[in-house]
Lab assay of single mutants.
Amino acid sequence: PQEEYKKRAKKALKKGDEDTAREALKRAGLSPDQAEEFIRRFL
């Protein structure tokens, strides 16, 4: 589910792994723009 992928993305970002985070967010159904926004907000 979407929440699970978002959790995964946050874990990846904590490790500084933005590529894995983007992949997880893409799987969560976010557009690339939404994924970038999510990452920017998190960092």
Rank of each mutant, 00 (worst) to 15 (best):
L13A: 03
K10V: 15
R22H: 05
K7P: 02
D19L: 12
F42V: 09
A9T: 02
R40T: 07
R22L: 06
L25H: 00
R41E: 11
I39C: 02
P1T: 14
E37V: 06
A21S: 02
K10Y: 14
A28T: 04
A24T: 08
A21P: 00
F38V: 04
T20K: 09
E3M: 08
K14S: 13
A35T: 12
K15G: 11
G29S: 03
E36I: 05
L13N: 01
D33T: 11
K10C: 14
K15E: 15
A21C: 05
R41Y: 09
K11G: 07
S31C: 08
R8V: 14
A28E: 02
R40L: 08
R41P: 01
I39Q: 00
K11F: 06
P1K: 14
A9E: 01
L30H: 02
R41F: 08
A35F: 03
E23Q: 10
K6R: 10
R27P: 01
T20F: 07
K26V: 09
D33C: 12
T20Q: 10
T20W: 06
P32Q: 11
R27T: 08
F42L: 06
F42D: 02
K6N: 04
D33G: 09
L30I: 04
L25C: 01
E18F: 15
L25G: 00
Y5H: 09
A24K: 04
K11Q: 15
A35R: 06
Q2Y: 12
Q34I: 05
R8P: 02
L13C: 04
D17T: 02
A21V: 03
E36N: 09
K10H: 10
L30A: 03
K15V: 13
E3L: 08
Q34V: 05
R8H: 10
K10A: 13
K6Y: 15
R41W: 11
E4M: 11
Q34E: 14
K26P: 01
G16H: 06
E18W: 15
K7N: 12
A35H: 02
F38Y: 08
D19K: 14
P32D: 13
A35M: 12
R8L: 15
Q34G: 05
Q2E: 13
F42W: 12
L13I: 05
F42A: 08
R41S: 10
P32S: 11
D19R: 13
A12S: 05
R8C: 13
L13D: 01
Q34P: 01
T20L: 10
K15I: 13
P1M: 15
E23R: 09
Y5I: 04
L43G: 08
E37L: 07
G16W: 04
P1Y: 14
D19T: 13
F38H: 01
P1G: 12
Y5D: 06
K10F: 11
E37G: 05
D17S: 04
A35D: 00
G29Q: 03
A35G: 03
I39S: 00
G29D: 03
R40A: 09
R40H: 09
G16T: 02
K7L: 09
Q34F: 05
